[in-house]
Design a protein around this nucleic acid. Sequence first.
DNA 1: ATTATCTTTGACCCGTTGGTTAAATGTTAT
DNA 2: ATAACATTTAACCAACGGGTCAAAGATAAT
Lengths: 211, 211
Amino acid sequence: MSKSGPTDGHTQEKIFLAATEIFEEKGYTGARMQEIADRAGINKALLHYYFRTKDQLFMAVFHVLLKKMFEKIFSIFQEDISFKEKIRRYLDEHIEFMIKNPKLPIFLLNELSRNDSLAESLKEMIIYQQVREMIYTKHAKELKAYGIKKNDMPQLMVTLVSFSIFPFAARDMLKIVIPELADNKKFNAYMRERKEFAADFLFTALKHRKK
Amino acid sequence: MSKSGPTDGHTQEKIFLAATEIFEEKGYTGARMQEIADRAGINKALLHYYFRTKDQLFMAVFHVLLKKMFEKIFSIFQEDISFKEKIRRYLDEHIEFMIKNPKLPIFLLNELSRNDSLAESLKEMIIYQQVREMIYTKHAKELKAYGIKKNDMPQLMVTLVSFSIFPFAARDMLKIVIPELADNKKFNAYMRERKEFAADFLFTALKHRKK
DNA sequence: ATTATCTTTGACCCGTTGGTTAAATGTTAT
DNA sequence: ATAACATTTAACCAACGGGTCAAAGATAAT
C-alpha cells in the first residue's frame, strides 16, 4: 500500500523543492519556515531535522540556483565553436533557460545585493577569469577583425548579458510600461524575438564600430 | 536654546528619510519599524503617529522613489531636441542619477516583483503610452531614416534602458565576475564610459541595421 | 522478537515585531 | 492663566517566527 504522504522516502527533495519555490517567490527575509514546511507537506520540526536552520536551507538552495544560472552561461563559452556562434548559442539557450525560470534573475540579484557574504559562494566558481583569457586567445582573429581589444570586453560582456537577463529582472516594470508584455505568452514570444534582435544588433554594431 | 532631538519640527521628514534608507537597504520584508525609528532618532510610537502602519510608510516611500526614477526617464524624452540628442541626454542624466542612487534599481525591481499590487501605483503615471506616440510622430523623419518601425520600439526601448539600469541592478554579480568593478570609483568610471559606449553602440547598430 | 537507529510529529519556548494606549510634555489660541 | 490641540514617550500586548524537545512510528540489524 503506497501512501503519498511522508515516508515516501524523498522527503529531502520535497523540502528542497518547496524551499526553492518559496525563497524564489518571497526572498530570504520574506520566506517563512512554516510555509516551506506546508508546501512540502511536512511538519516544521522535520524541516529543521533535515536542514538545521533557515540559513542553512537558504544557502543550499541559493548555491544550487546560482550554479544553475552560471553553468548555463559559461559552458557555452567553452565549446569549440566560433565566437559568433557562441554568442548566438548563448542568447538562445540562456533565454530559453530563463523562460523556464523567470523569477531566478531577480531573486539572485536581490539576494546578492542584500547579503554581501553570499558573494563568497560565487567566488568559488570564478571560471570567468579563465574564460575571459580563453576567449581572447582562442578567438584572437575574430576579435581582431572586429577591432575588439581586451579593454573593451567588460562593456561588451555586460551588454551581451543584459540583453537576456534584464528583461526578466525588470519584467514587472516593463509589464506596466509596455502593456503588450503583460501577457505571459506574448512576453515569451517577445524574448524569443529578442534572441535574433540582440545578435543582429550586436554584430552590426561590432562590424561598423569606430576603432 | 536649540536642542537637536525631536521637537525640531521636521520630524516627518526625518522619518521619511530614515525609512527611505532602511527600505532601500533591506526591502519591505527585511526592514524593521524599530530600526527606522532608531535611525530617525525617535520613538517607535511616534513613527506610528505619523504613519499609521508599516504598509502606509512603505507605500509613501515607494511611490516617491518610483516617481523620481520615472520622471528622470520621461522628462528628457519630452524635451524639444533631436531623437539622437534625447538618447545621449537620457544616458548621461540617468546614469548620473543612479550613481547618486545606486541601490534604487534593485530595490524597485525587487519590490515590484514581490508585490503585484505595487504595479498599480505605477499605472497612474503611464505617461509612456503618450511618450511613445509622441516620439513616433515628433521624430518621424529621424526614425524613418533609421528604418525604425513602430513595431521595433519595444526591443529598442528595452535595450536602451537596460544599458543604464542593468549594471546597477546586477552590480553585486558583476563585482565578482569582473573584479575591476568591485571598487566604487572604478565602477562609477566604468558607468561614465558606458554613456558614450552605449550611445555609439546604439547609433552604429541603428545606422547599419538590416531593414 | 528485540534492540538500535532513523524519521516524523505535536506541543512548547522565547525573542521579535507591528501596533496600541494612556499619560506627559509642548504649543497655540483666547 | 487656561483651555484646546498637537507631539512625544514609556510601557504594554498579541501574534508571529525560528528553533527545540520528548515521545511516537518506522526500519534495519542481531
